[in-house]
């Protein structure tokens, strides 16, 4: 109990920070690459230009933040959605490990990809 008490504020802080980042940054990205380009509302990107853009240090940092924090937002929120929506609080450990496992894996993947790009 004591351990949980001291950690919950950190998870909530990550959740909040992720919530802000997700709210500010994600919609426009999904709009461009998930809808506008595939539906030819705007022209598709030239590969080289896109790559050079993504290789800029500032862009790497931007993309890292954009990927990692929202995953922690997801982990926290989805965890509670499962508790409340499905009434499975007794599976706390499994749910917790899965949600934050996804977030940590995603963050590592993002770091690795952006390092190597």
């Amino acid at each position: 109990m004591e351990a949980k008490k001291s950690h919950e504020p950190i998870f909530w802080t990550l959740f909040s920070a992720g919530g802000v980042v997700a709210a500010l940054l994600l919609p426009v990205h999904l709009f461009i690459f998930g809808m506008a380009v595939p539906l030819h509302w705007i022209h598709g990107p030239a590969y080289n230009l896109l790559l050079s853009l993504a290789q800029m240090p500032i862009a790497r940092l931007y993309l890292f933040v954009m990927c990692s924090l929202p995953l922690f937002h997801f982990a926290h929120r989805f965890r509670y959605t499962l508790y409340d929506g499905l009434q499975i609080k007794h599976l706390n450990e499994v749910v917790f490990a899965s949600c934050y496992g996804i977030a940590v894996l995603g963050t590592v993947a993002a770091g690795w990809l952006l390092w190597r790009i």
Binding site: S6, E8, P9, I10, W12, T13, S16
Partner: peptide, 10 residues
């Protein structure tokens, strides 16, 4: 407030 507090002690 609790998060601020938690971060501070962290």
């Amino acid at each position: 407030a609790a998060a601020m507090d938690g971060m501070k002690s962290f």
